[in-house]
């Protein structure tokens, strides 16, 4: 009897602790666990917000099978940095304007955040941001990708992104004629 009561109390305490937790645990495709601020996750990712609201967050690590550990680490890092970078008073208004406001230039820390990534890491991060419905992170990563193309010819862009030219000779000639003015031949 005594023992049972103790168990019940422990259960109760655990439940309270769960509800009070201000982080969620996310599990990458390769089984690594990451803790992220619940508030930041819900604010920055529509998918995570839905999961949190719908109670489908697993305390032992919510499976995100589509995201590798390196990308998930970057996502979590971004969420945590974002949580720290905005004064708490501005939180509510910024979360409202996020969906409607046009993209603003990346902030200094966001620029640095994506600048340090390798091409592969950037690729994984843009896919993860898209998958998790993280509009702001998607904007920041896509902005970075667009910067990498600026002032470059199609050939140079292919080289940067290691893309195979899949046009036939005829198609290429057709495009060249159609868009001749845009080729940086001179």
């Amino acid at each position: 009897m005594e023992v049972d009561k103790g168990k019940g109390e422990a259960e109760e305490t655990r439940k309270v602790a769960e509800a009070d937790r201000d982080t969620v645990t996310l599990k990458s495709s390769d089984g690594k666990l990451f803790e992220v601020s619940k508030e930041a996750a819900a604010r920055l990712s529509t998918v995570l917000a839905g999961m949190i609201a719908g109670g489908s967050i697993d305390d032992n690590g919510t499976d995100l099978k589509q995201i590798g550990s390196e990308a998930l680490e970057n996502v979590v890092d971004y969420c945590n940095k974002h949580a720290n970078s905005i004064p708490s008073a501005a939180l509510i208004s910024s979360s409202i304007s996020f969906n409607t406001a046009p993209f603003k230039e990346p902030e200094e820390w966001e620029r640095k955040f994506v600048d340090r990534l390798s091409h592969d890491a950037l690729f994984d991060l843009v896919e993860a941001a898209n998958f998790l419905g993280m509009e702001r992170l998607l904007d920041v990563t896509c902005h970075k990708i667009s910067e990498m193309m600026k002032g470059k010819s199609p050939d140079q862009i292919r080289e940067v992104f290691n893309i195979k030219n899949d046009y036939t000779k005829e198609e290429l000639e057709e495009i060249r004629q159609e868009l001749a003015w845009a080729f940086y031949d001179d």
Binding site: Q66, E70, E127, N162
Partner: peptide, 13 residues
């Protein structure tokens, strides 16, 4: 090679 996990390339975005 671009996606370390998916193995996709930049043209598959």
């Amino acid at each position: 090679m671009a996606g370390t996990y998916t193995g996709l390339s930049w043209s598959d975005l």
